[in-house]
Design a protein around this nucleic acid. Sequence first.
DNA 1: CGCTGGGTTGATGGAGCTCAAGGCCAGTGG
DNA 2: CCACTGGCCTTGAGCTCCATCAACCCAGCG
Lengths: 248, 248
Amino acid sequence: MGEVGNAGLLVRKVASVAHLSAEERAALERLPMSIRSIPARQDIVRVGDRPSQCCLVLAGFAFRYKLIGEGRRQILNFHVPGDIPDLQSLHLPVIDHNLAALTPLTAGFIRHDAVHEVSARFPRITGALWRNTLVDAAILRERVVSIGQRDGLSRTAHFLCEMAKRLVAVDLAPGLVLPMPITQVEIADALGLSPVHVNRMVRELRERRLIALDGQRLEILDWDALARLGDFDATFLHLQADERPRLP
Amino acid sequence: MGEVGNAGLLVRKVASVAHLSAEERAALERLPMSIRSIPARQDIVRVGDRPSQCCLVLAGFAFRYKLIGEGRRQILNFHVPGDIPDLQSLHLPVIDHNLAALTPLTAGFIRHDAVHEVSARFPRITGALWRNTLVDAAILRERVVSIGQRDGLSRTAHFLCEMAKRLVAVDLAPGLVLPMPITQVEIADALGLSPVHVNRMVRELRERRLIALDGQRLEILDWDALARLGDFDATFLHLQADERPRLP
DNA sequence: CGCTGGGTTGATGGAGCTCAAGGCCAGTGG
DNA sequence: CCACTGGCCTTGAGCTCCATCAACCCAGCG
């Protein structure tokens, strides 16, 4: 239940995709943001809500999902620090899916009207935020391709490559060792596979010496082979130059 | 190779989602738009392109797709008159998927700089366009859910419901009879099923007296049953009041 | 020290893929 | 007028990937 807080990450993320001016960055920094800690697995926003704020992930992972009849769940995306998972609520008032903390989460909440106001004064901030939602959509497109066309092994490899790139982009991956606090059940729900099958696919990737994965930590042992297997091409992440430091 | 042309549809579509003022509508109408006819199956924009304009569908259907190794294709979405399939290119300069005409197409091309200019003068137009891209993302989310969680029959039913609602929203569906110039192969590539299986699913829906479908024309015989089978809830389309005239 | 949440493994079956062939129809050209 | 062609739809048969069911293991924890 925090106070106006550190918007550094917001600036870093938003600014990096649009090369904003110092004045624009300052305006972002000044956005009032209330910081809250949220326990793992707790919902933040639910289907049908009409939130008046949006949520910046500061530390920990979040995820978005939809439930359908008979206890099935589709995870739409995972979110890492720097993401604003529900930015779309700025212009789609009724939320059509759930947002929850995956790990214990530190999140900053920013009121819509504050965003609208900054956005009105600085059109390039509007563009940067808009772009953010467009990248989210691009990730979804690639997810559709994965689930629709790739087999289990390739799909799993692709997913790990995607998470790796995204974590590297926010400097959370020292070398090719990544925090990956995602259970196999959650990976399964994200990839449209059964947990049992995900387990087998992970085992296969391990046996091929492509990865080491233990539920908290993913180490990529052979990036090239993993990317080839997953048919991974990072174009869809639309990373800017300053967002792709490492990784081939 | 047309001239400055009829932007009525643009206004109708964009304005309907944001209740724009007369002045704002007029600004949209004045956007220079060059009209072109495009033969069926021809690409309009390709992966890697950096278009300087975006494309408003005036008549006919378009679709977006990605190709992956070994001749597999995932269709991401179909587009009906009123849609602006590549609006995202406004802020994501490099195109990450292909856009093609499904049927013979009439499309209006509007230069990015013209859009940016109008958008700078009228923040609510920005909002309306942004919202457009967000609805596109919402449709993608629901597609992920379909492909990831629903079986073939339910997936097919859901897809037909979605297309029906979208066509009704642009007044292209007199009663529950819809133009549906989509081959079964294309439906298959959109739903992540094989063409053979789509054929069987369509047959099943026909035998259950839920639909009549002949490759040009879909008639929905029992909306309630079809929606129930497809687990269809139109919330994700984020239709405004003036976009949902008919259908229960 | 029992419990719980996650991971792991085996066995079985089914939804959906692939391969293959044939039918229907519209368009085309002789 | 009719043979021919190419799309598209349709149907059958066999097979495979992956879901499901059912254990069991292990570590952390109250």
